[in-house]
Simulated scan of single mutants.
Amino acid sequence: MEAMERRKTAADRVRVAEGVVEQLREGLAEFGVKLPSLRIDPVSCAGDEPTPLVDLGRCNIGTALRLCEVLAEKESGHDG
């Protein structure tokens, strides 16, 4: 029974991480930012008690600059 509970807890953690990745993807898209490699790090989901990590991935310089612009706009109180 305890092993089943651990598997359920692990699956719940992964589901939460998947939701966070989707929320990030949608939120960034509203500002014209797409991180092509945004995903859950598969290695962090391995084992009996995974601790999923969100991998923001790699992006080109244009995307990084756009992300900087969005952050600067939010910091100054202007919505893009």
Rank of each mutant, 00 (worst) to 15 (best):
G80P: 13
H78Y: 09
P36T: 10
E18S: 09
R58K: 14
C68L: 15
A29K: 08
R58H: 14
I61E: 15
I61H: 14
L65K: 12
R6N: 09
R13Y: 06
Q23H: 09
F31R: 02
P50L: 08
E75L: 11
E73A: 10
C68M: 13
R7L: 12
G77R: 03
N60G: 12
S76F: 04
P36E: 12
K74L: 15
G32A: 01
P52L: 02
L28V: 00
A3Y: 07
K74E: 15
P50W: 10
D55S: 14
E75S: 10
G62S: 10
D41W: 00
T63R: 05
R25S: 03
E30S: 07
K8L: 12
E26Y: 02
L24G: 01
L35Y: 04
D79V: 09
V20M: 08
D79K: 01
R15P: 02
L35R: 06
V16L: 10
R13N: 05
A64E: 13
P42C: 00
V54F: 03
P50S: 06
A72E: 10
V16P: 01
L71K: 01
T9H: 14
L65E: 15
G27R: 05
F31W: 09
V21F: 00
V70L: 09
V14Y: 05
C59W: 09
S76Q: 10
C68G: 14
R58F: 13
V43I: 15
G62V: 01
A11G: 03
V54Y: 00
V14K: 13
R6W: 08
G62P: 02
R13L: 01
G77D: 03
A10Q: 04
E69T: 03
L28P: 01
G47C: 07
R7A: 15
E5I: 08
G19Q: 00
V43S: 05
R39P: 02
V70P: 05
T9C: 08
V14R: 14
P50H: 08
E2Q: 11
G32D: 04
R15F: 05
G80A: 11
G77Y: 00
P52E: 03
K34C: 06
L71M: 11
E22S: 07
R6Q: 13
A29W: 04
N60M: 06
